[in-house]
Nucleic acid binder design. Structure first.
Ligand SMILES: [Mn+2]
Ligand SMILES: [Mn+2]
Ligand SMILES: [Zn+2]
Ligand SMILES: [Zn+2]
Lengths: 138, 138
DNA sequence: ATCCTTATTGAAAATATTTATCAATAAGAT
DNA sequence: ATCTTATTGATAAATATTTTCAATAAGGAT
């Protein structure tokens, strides 16, 4: 289900600014902050407000169409997210990011930690870091 | 090795502000932001600058004595970190956080992801969320 | 204890980031 | 083409973080 449909469902409207933000995210391979997206929009000579970028990101987040990247420094990068449970793999050097399906089995860890802490675990954040193919050469 | 020693090693000095920040972190069971630490210092009637809190956190971070909590909203909470590889388990409701040793085996996932993406994985961020014992009752 | 060197502090200002307001605009249904 | 109202973006306000720099204090030397 694409943005248009999700908007319709809620009586919301497809607008040019929203299309621009989405398009920029689609073209990106690294996590983008609101500010960066705004920059790129300006470069494209698009008339858009920074506030709208924030609002659109919030919207896309609600729709689950976007995911935040929590690298140590830049905490506020957004990436387009495929539907379903995924995680990010970020290149330390160039930030190029790919997602991988979250089919990993954490039940072992979860079991153990629950027993040891008394907590009831129901969610997790997993992010991998490394070197992308092209950065491995240099 | 405690803060005093690590400071000595680098020709740095143990100061009262640094002691205060450390002490506040030691007393906390939830991730604290620079601002919050500053607040608590004021409550303790300690003379300290917010800038110094930022600087001290940066320092503690370099020393690996502190870990950042990346909850969805509050991206900049700091927690005192035990030496060695650990992760955080955060309570959704009250934020109470415990750490658990990172002895989990991610090699399965890592292997698979490396093969599928061509990336070379060498680090990860794992955080668990759930309900702490006391929040389970309510 | 006193002196000296220099790491450290914090007030103040500069930047950067995020949120709130609100009149003007434009989506999209009729 | 008209109408309703969701949406935008300029502006301002609120937060958060970083930079600057003269005054202070840690801690080694005497
Ligand atoms: Mn997962
Ligand atoms: Mn681990
Ligand atoms: Zn790379
Ligand atoms: Zn709790």
């Amino acid at each position: 289900m694409d943005l248009q449909e999700k908007l319709n469902q809620k009586g919301l409207r497809m607008t040019r600014p929203r299309r621009v933000v989405l398009s920029i995210l689609e073209a990106a391979s690294v996590p983008l902050s609101a500010g960066t997206i705004y920059q790129k929009a300006l470069e494209r000579k698009e008339r858009i407000g920074l506030v709208t970028v924030y609002r659109t990101l919030e919207l896309l987040d609600e729709f689950g169409m976007v995911r935040r990247a929590h690298s140590q420094d830049e905490c506020h990068g957004y990436l387009l997210a495929s539907p379903g449970h995924h995680h990010n793999l970020v290149c330390h050097t160039c930030m190029k990011t790919v997602e991988f399906p979250g089919s990993e089995d954490l039940s072992g860890i979860v079991q153990r930690v629950q027993r040891q802490t008394g907590y009831q675990v129901n969610d997790h954040l997993l992010e991998l870091y490394g070197l992308c193919p092209s950065c491995q050469e240099s």
